[in-house]
Design a protein around this nucleic acid. Structure first.
Lengths: 204, 204
DNA sequence: CGCTGTTTTAACTATATGGTTAAACCGTAC
DNA sequence: GTACGGTTTAACCATATAGTTAAAACAGCG
């Protein structure tokens, strides 16, 4: 058996992450998570009380991989805005590549339970006024564009970065004829494609 | 009771569409679909055999809303390519606005069962070689760009069109402070933002 | 060692779920 | 009216599921 309480919690969380992210809340089974963790199912309840509480932790953690660091990059004061956008794109694509299933997981679960899941995330400390500040006072000001244009910019970057991953099964099948190497090549080009596209809109 | 077999099938399909698209395969309950349809649950099995078969029909139908018409628009021979891209973007955004939950549904379900769901769609008649033809022989040729660039273009258009909808709960909360009117205003601007962005990359 | 608190286990529970069954009902044709 | 095939219903069923329970096992301390 594991050495201590914190190890068991960790083992459970790791297993839950794997299972929830691929199966979603409804599709995941507590026994499956227990099997993945190599523990007795009753421990899930002992440590986390319920399936939903366990899911909440995994969901918040998943969200937390994507948003806070974006604030840090765009909010930093010692880099030129164009460079910040570049680093942001680079960073974003890298995070997605390291966690390719998380965007689909978030999108799918949000569709099923938008209200509560958004609250889970906001509760976790997401500072929405900080986001607005970054968009209005940093992006818009430094790029000399309107707040709304800055919003569009952020959404465009995220959209262009995320989409190939969330639609991967389809793109591979339909456009790349199940050729994974070609798809991977396509993905490796995304950074420069996005930079060019976004770059022209910033400089225009 | 309904008048005939075809009415009962229709009523079931409509109810199943509503429930599956919001709850997904695992989250939807057969009793819930029966309640939504106002029929006895056993009829679901009588007409459609199983939950999965019913889901398959709904999934294929949902996919069918998004892809075939894109081929028609881009494949038509009597419009200038730039106009075709414009009509494509316009059409795509309109379809999404009319079916705002479908993209999230597709993305979420694909994450859970990529192999089989992709097959469901391909089985339904999606002509992947026709897609390649459109990308290579129409888009790439007419725009005088490489096949790979044409692929990026299609993915960019879809990404920019779809993303605000799949991330709506979050965007509304984080960027628009739950102001639905502002979000709707933002969405209404997407067409022109996307056209400008894509337009500059086409003409560059 | 005994005690206490914590962790883990195996068995159990109440309820839900997708699916089945048999009979009742309906519409049509003779 | 009867017979027949198709549709619908209410009850039922086998299994799965999240969660509970009580006891065993463990760890640390005096």
């Amino acid at each position: 058996m594991t050495n201590s309480k914190s190890d068991t919690e960790k083992v459970i969380l790791e297993a839950a992450r794997k299972v929830f992210i691929r199966k979603g809340l409804d599709g995941a089974r507590m026994q499956e998570i227990a099997d993945e963790a190599g523990i007795n199912k009753a421990l899930l309840h002992y440590y986390f009380r319920s399936k939903e509480k366990l899911f909440k932790m995994v969901f918040r953690e998943a969200m937390g991989k994507f948003f806070p660091s974006m604030l840090m990059i765009l909010g930093s004061q010692d880099i030129a805005i164009e460079k910040k956008v570049e680093v942001f794109i680079e960073h974003y694509i890298r995070i997605i590549q390291e966690n390719p299933f998380i965007p689909s997981f978030i999108i799918g679960e949000l569709n099923k339970n938008p209200g509560q899941l958004t609250e889970f995330f906001v509760e976790s400390g997401m500072d929405t006024s900080r986001v607005s500040f970054i968009i209005e006072e940093v992006l818009a000001k430094e790029l000399k564009i309107s707040t709304q244009q800055a919003r569009h910019l952020v959404v465009n970057i995220i959209a262009l970065s995320v989409f190939p991953f969330v639609s991967r099964p389809l793109l591979e099948k339909i456009i790349f004829h199940s050729n994974k190497d070609e798809f991977d090549q396509f993905v490796s080009e995304r950074k420069s494609v996005i930079m060019n596209l976004i770059g022209t809109s910033i400089y225009r």
